[in-house]
Design a protein around this nucleic acid. Structure first.
Length: 174
DNA sequence: CACCAGTGCTCGG
DNA sequence: CCGAGCACTGGTG
């Protein structure tokens, strides 16, 4: 059986069975494309898989073809039926970034914390937390949209529209 | 050393 | 109450 996965540089087909790849080749799996997900998402999404694990989720990317397991979980999440993900991931970052991301993963669905609150738990500064979150390779899975500034929303790499959307989604007002 | 997805403070509307 | 300016912050390349 052949699936269609893509190199970042070269979008020609490469075959790698999802979750079973033995090669070390970086593989890109893309999703989105119009009605692939719910119609009112702020944008499409792409997912990158290497050696059977999701290593990058990109909001606002407009390509196509996502592994079925991941697609299913994302669609459930976006329709409000799923609160956590079970697909395999590999989290890549510095040790500090991993600490921040781990802490952020503890924030319950539908709740938010401030950058300062996260910083205090880790004995660091809000600024450093923001900087680590800006590098989050797995938005949604590492729910950085649940971290807001003390006054307003704070920032979001994929755009504040996404951040608002995700917070509203989890609040159930959607 | 110069960036930053932050925060608290101080002014002036 | 709001916004602009400013100092301070701590990890990163």
């Amino acid at each position: 059986m052949r699936d269609r996965f893509f190199h970042r540089s070269d979008r020609s087909q490469i075959y790698t069975p999802f979750m079973e790849s033995s090669s070390n080749e970086p593989v890109i799996i893309l999703s989105g494309g119009g009605d692939f997900f719910m119609k009112d998402l702020p944008g499409n999404i792409s997912v990158r898989v290497e050696n059977g694990k999701v290593v990058e989720i990109k909001l606002g990317s407009d390509e196509s073809n996502c592994p079925p397991k991941v697609k299913k979980e994302l669609e459930e999440y976006f329709s409000g039926k799923r609160k956590e993900f079970s697909f395999p991931v590999e989290i890549r970052g510095t040790s500090f970034q991993k600490k921040v991301w781990e802490e952020v993963r503890k924030i319950p669905y539908g709740e938010t914390r401030t950058y300062r609150e996260i910083a205090e738990k880790l004995n660091t500064s809000p600024r450093a937390v923001g900087q680590a979150l800006a590098k989050n390779p797995l938005p949604l899975y590492i729910p950085c949209h649940r971290v807001v500034s003390k006054r307003g929303l704070g920032g979001f790499s994929a755009g504040l529209e996404w951040k608002r959307f995700l917070i509203d989604l989890e609040r159930g007002s959607r």
